[in-house]
Design a protein around this nucleic acid. Sequence first.
DNA 1: TTTAACTATGATCTTTAAATCATAAAGAGT
DNA 2: ACTCTTTATGATTTAAAGATCATAGTTAAA
Lengths: 83, 83
Amino acid sequence: MKQLARTPKDIGHAIREARKERRLSQTELASRSGLWQETISKIENGVASTKMETLFDVLAALDLEIQVQPRSKGVPSSMDALF
Amino acid sequence: MKQLARTPKDIGHAIREARKERRLSQTELASRSGLWQETISKIENGVASTKMETLFDVLAALDLEIQVQPRSKGVPSSMDALF
DNA sequence: TTTAACTATGATCTTTAAATCATAAAGAGT
DNA sequence: ACTCTTTATGATTTAAAGATCATAGTTAAA
């Protein structure tokens, strides 16, 4: 189940989905990733623009990883910025 | 050219590669993403654990996106944390 | 529907990323 | 070698994330 992400909110959604699949509460995920329930909540809701360090802590706890790739077709954004 | 990333340093590498492919200097990338050359340098070198907001600014300027996915085989990390 | 678990939100404090300026160190080209 | 461009680093200031505590909503389950 791969999830595209172009904004912090996208990442938040992906994390929430993955957490639910694993049937973890925010508190459980928090303790597994060395964070706080409040922080997980904010990340999932895109309230705060998390630090990468924090993000990777959460991803690791969910056994997820990230892939950096060229933007796929649809929703072209800053095509003009290339060349 | 897809790049796996599990740490801020991984992302830094991916960004540097993409920037070079596009033959941009750090200063050019910085101005396109509304940041500073110094910041790009630190991100590429994994010196600072960038905020997601900043990261996405850079990715957008390079027309890159991120995909969240289950950790691929090899380098198993916290397999035990699942279930 | 009452209770218990889960999630969201608000305040304060600490820590740290990013802006900004200055400059050093590297690299490329002539 | 010297010059120009690019990249790295260091200091200071500002803004914002995360920790922490308290608590208000919300949801699920008995």
